[in-house]
Amino acid sequence: MQGLIDFLSQGGYAFYVWSAFGMTFALLVAEVVVLRRSRRTILQRVGRLARLRTQNVPPGEPS
């Protein structure tokens, strides 16, 4: 337990150390999340457009 507290306090520099590492962690995780979500969004939209075509939308319509 004391070891964990010592580790987290980083010799009194916890604020600086964890601010730096925390932001790095947050941004890398956020990038992965955004990439996955936008992939899903794109596939859904492409799928919708594909279904629109199969449902006999008049060819003049923008699709």
Binding site: R40, L43, Q44, R45, V46, G47, R48, L49, A50, R51, L52, R53, Q55, V57, E61, P62, S63
Partner: peptide, 30 residues
């Protein structure tokens, strides 16, 4: 891309009730 989406289109997330799909599609990505 169409072919790939068509092949994967049978998935659960991309099978809306018939009819709803058209309006939905026109709104969001028509």
């Amino acid at each position: 891309v169409r072919k790939m989406v068509d092949e994967a289109g049978a998935g659960p997330s991309s099978s809306p009730p018939p009819g709803a799909g058209a309006a939905d599609g026109l709104d969001a990505g028509g």
